[in-house]
């Protein structure tokens, strides 16, 4: 029972098929996965390994072709406020002020305007954007906009955060700042997070556990536990830690092995 309490997300032998005019293609095959409450996991792998498909399935954007997806023990059926999703692009609505953008999720959830605005302002302060509430997205830099997107994602107080390469379009410097901010915020609020990324260093620096996916069709190749001493550090510090290189190398090797596999099977 205690184990179930701790379990936040679960995939039970999930497969997914994309159907188009050309035919049906298997994107994810028989994937099983458990994520504990408060855990931060990363999915890395070559393109076409189904990373984003897994994230969309977790978000409830579409149902899996077979298998089960559970959140807190209940099947995921459609997108809900319990799951926050951060996209690669900030996707702010250009005609809304920063505050109105941050309050979007609350507004959709039916929270009164005054309350939503107050909550949005509070979160904007938390992500380091105090005083920008009345400005428009076009006036902000890319990093600031992605911070607004983070505030918008956190505003409905989701239990799970799905991060779909949210830092990949940013400059290195801004990216590392945001990695620290996101990890610190999620840890403070005790959120569960699933990060999809191309960046092995990012995965190693941010997560508690890294899953390496293989492609054709997408499956879990291997799983790597990040050592405790890295996990407790913020990502920028973790990158400097002596133990970091070993984790990175292990991930690198797994990715390389996958490429060789792909070559053989093709």
């Amino acid at each position: 029972m205690a184990a179930n309490e701790k379990l936040m997300l679960e995939l039970r032998s999930v497969s997914h098929v994309y159907v188009g005019r050309q035919g049906a293609s298997l994107a994810v095959e028989d994937m099983s996965l458990m994520v504990a409450r408060g855990e931060f996991i990363s999915l890395v792998g070559p393109s076409g390994c189904g990373k984003t498909t897994v994230l969309s399935l977790l978000a409830g954007l579409f149902p899996p072709a077979s298998g089960q997806i559970l959140m807190g023990g209940r099947p995921v059926e459609k997108p809900s406020a319990k799951v926050g999703y951060m996209l690669q692009q900030d996707c702010l609505l250009p005609w809304r002020t920063i505050r109105d953008n941050a309050a979007l999720g609350l507004q959709i959830g039916g929270v009164s305007t005054a309350q939503a605005h107050a909550a949005a302002e509070r979160l904007l302060e938390e992500v380091g954007l105090a005083g920008t509430g009345t400005r428009y997205p076009g006036e902000l830099s890319g990093g600031m906009r992605q911070r607004v997107a983070l505030a918008r994602t956190l505003a409905p107080n989701p239990e799970v955060l799905l991060l779909d390469e949210p830092f990949s379009a940013l400059d290195m410097h801004i990216k590392m700042q945001l990695e620290d901010l996101v990890q610190a915020t999620l840890r403070k609020l005790g959120k569960t997070a699933v990060l999809v990324t191309h960046d092995l260093a990012e995965a190693a620096a941010m997560s508690d556990r890294v899953l390496v996916l293989g492609r054709d069709p997408g499956h879990i190749r291997t799983e790597l536990q990040v050592p405790e001493e890295l996990r407790v550090l913020p990502p920028t510090e973790a990158r400097k830690h002596p133990a970091f290189q070993a984790v990175f190398d292990a991930l690198w090797e797994e990715m390389g092995a996958d490429e060789k596999d792909g070559g053989n099977s093709a």
């Binding site: 978000a59 954007l61 459609k78 997108p79 809900s80 406020a81 799951v83 999703y85 996209l87 692009q89 996707c91 609505l93 979007l104 999720g105 959709i108 959830g109 918008r152 409905p156």
Partner: peptide, 13 residues
């Protein structure tokens, strides 16, 4: 823009 549509869908709109 599909991104803007996706955001609203993901927020349960």
């Amino acid at each position: 823009e599909p991104g803007l549509v996706k955001v609203v869908r993901l927020l349960g709109g």
